[in-house]
């Protein structure tokens, strides 16, 4: 039981971190960025390349990965999303294609074999009979710190409030003197950075491979659909629902069914409560 509780919290923390950048774009820009999983892959591979291939220290490697994610977000917004002018279906199709293109690029550069990312923090921690790696513990703590920081940023700063304003009423935001284009671009940059950070932790929890973008994308989509349009607190709650559901499934039913219930949950919520459990439209 203790094992389930601990594992549940650890996995949920990671999932919240994975989903929050995706939620952010959905709230502010009203589009599903299906290339979001590719940020995680970019982050993971950027960290791998800088730290394990080039031998850079971990912190600069981490910052490099974060920067790559932010850059990918900005480029995606400027070159693709902005030109499609809010056509949601076009954005979804083209971002999905982009994810596949990025996957091909990763195969070209790093080949298609899986790679092991060394833990960002080594060692294990024992609570009773339960052993947890410091790595996933750090991922959970980082997730809470990042989400807390993001919440403070959104609620307490002018720029954060501008992001909320755009998410609630774009015309109202524009006539308040907010340049919605700039806010959107910044949101894409933050989302890319968050995705990359999540990717480094996710890859160190699982492994690096060119199709690693799919599973986190499903988690992120699930959190947005189940939670409704993205409150940060809602993201945290739903990440825990999904995280615990997976751990319980893995422990008590069958490990093979792990992702299946998440997907069934997506369909169930779409049918029964399409606006999501907490949906109302703000950050």
């Amino acid at each position: 039981m203790l094992q389930v509780l601990i594992q549940g919290f650890l996995l949920s923390g990671l999932y919240a971190l994975i989903a929050v950048g995706f939620t952010l774009i959905f709230s502010v820009g009203r589009v599903l960025n299906l290339a979001y999983g590719a940020y995680l892959m970019l982050g993971g591979y950027a960290y791998f390349y800088s730290v394990q291939t080039l031998g850079m220290p971990k912190l600069p490697g981490f910052l490099f990965a974060t920067g790559m994610g932010a850059l990918a977000g900005v480029l995606m917004y400027r070159l693709l999303v902005k030109r499609l002018k809010g056509d949601q279906v076009a954005v979804e199709i083209s971002t999905l294609i982009l994810a596949v293109v990025i996957q091909a690029g990763v195969v070209l550069v790093f080949n298609d074999s899986s790679k092991i990312l060394h833990p960002i923090v080594g060692g294990v921690w024992r609570i009773g009979s339960t052993t947890i790696t410091n790595n996933i513990l750090v991922a959970m703590v980082a997730s809470w710190i990042i989400l807390g920081g993001l919440l403070l940023f959104v609620k307490k700063t002018h720029v954060g409030r501008a992001m909320q304003a755009v998410s609630m009423d774009a015309k109202g935001a524009r006539i308040s003197g907010i340049n919605t284009d700039r806010v959107n671009m910044m949101t894409w940059a933050i989302s890319g950075a968050l995705g990359s950070v999540a990717g480094v932790f996710f890859a160190s929890y699982t492994q690096l491979n060119p199709s690693m973008w799919v599973a986190p994308l499903i988690i992120a989509v699930a959190v947005v659909i189940v939670g409704g349009i993205g409150s940060i607190v809602g993201t945290l709650i739903v990440a825990h629902i999904i995280g615990f559901m997976e751990i319980i499934t893995t422990t008590f039913i069958a490990a093979e069914l792990r992702g299946v219930f998440t997907m069934l949950l997506i369909i169930g919520v779409l049918v029964i409560r399409p606006q999501g459990l907490f949906g109302r439209g703000d950050l």
Partner: peptide
């Protein structure tokens, strides 16, 4: 503006 366009959940 007409219909205010406020930020409803702020």
């Amino acid at each position: 503006p007409e219909r205010a366009h406020l930020f409803p959940y702020m």
